[in-house]
Design a binder for these strands. Structure first.
Lengths: 176, 176
DNA sequence: GTGGATTGGTTGTAGATGCAACTTATCCGG
DNA sequence: CCGGATAAGTTGCATCTACAACCAATCCAC
């Protein structure tokens, strides 16, 4: 164990430090904007957006959990809160009596649609607009490598990539 | 307001999606390893590491809050927990009676030193080893741009950059 | 088709973070 | 040197997340 530690050189430790800073600050910044504008977390927004573009605005709990890289308990709690506010509703799943379907209500749909422009604008200010075209391509490539290593199934990208085959749709509700 | 939404093209939304995935999974992965190996969070580890390399192993609460991109309340709670475990101690600050100094105890120092190799190895597995040399350079540059936009003072990098002028030291406790 | 294993989901509880309120000390303009 | 403003910290509470325990339905091997 104490043999020899795999240390980092300056290039590596700088990259790591900057990434840690982003990890610390960016989620808080995302939540802050959505909280004050729409009283939802970024996680909530992701759930609502996924439902918004799902067929019949319905997804199974398990599907949602996979797409959001989340756990079922966490999702269940979040869904309960959103259900309490009338933004979505639980329905029994016809095909599988174990499963629960989540349906975006009309009110929920209005809320997401209303929240989206401000969110996208914020993401631009925070990230996209700070980078040139090459940076953005590199960010996608690098974050993709890290993401697929963290979770080999790369669930959110795949989930959205599926529908984007015909009509590119992102979790932010944008279209190419 | 509904004028025209600044939508994202496919390059941008892919990059954003992959980044969001990393934001979701990486902190959990960092915490998981440190929790099971040393029963501390990644935030705790950062605090302890900063103290480890500080003069006399002492830093003021405010300094620590700035360096960790954290808030005073969050830090205060974390310090209380670590103090309860004997890893560090609060001391009155001689120069300013409002301030509180935090000192890393010998036990805390042993703990940090013991936790560091496993943490670095994990960071390598999760991130560094997935990337080639160019990726790492690009990651540092890109994350740096985002970080400095999120917080223009880029506090952690500066805090560590100060001491690294003569002796490169990272929050992970590595040296070049 | 029965029984054990697996899957989908919920609930309770404990731990961590954000925020607001509050205290004490320092700073500074007059 | 007095009083208001600001700075450093702490505390309490509400919220969110992780984890473990649990229930119910489905699958599957025999």
């Amino acid at each position: 164990m104490p043999y020899r530690v795999p240390r980092m050189d300056e290039l590596e430790s700088t990259a790591w430090l900057e990434l840690v800073t982003v990890l610390e600050l960016l989620p808080a910044a995302l939540d802050a904007q959505l909280q004050q504008a729409s009283n939802i977390t970024h996680f909530d927004f992701t759930v609502l957006s996924l439902l918004r573009f799902a067929p019949h605005r319905v997804l199974q709990m398990k599907e949602l959990a996979v797409m959001t890289n989340s756990t079922l308990p966490r999702l269940s709690h979040a869904v309960s809160r959103l259900e309490g506010r009338g933004l979505l509703e639980r329905l029994p799943c016809p095909g599988d009596k174990r499963a629960t379907n989540v349906h975006l209500t009309d009110g929920g749909r209005r809320q997401v649609i209303r929240a989206t422009p401000g969110h996208i604008a914020h993401v631009r200010r925070l990230v996209i607009d700070q980078l040139d075209r090459d940076d953005i391509a590199a960010l996608g490539r690098i974050a993709g490598k890290i993401a697929r290593n963290l979770d080999p199934t790369d669930r959110m990208a795949n989930a959205l990539g599926a529908s984007s085959a015909t009509q590119p749709v992102t979790v932010s509700g944008t279209r190419a």
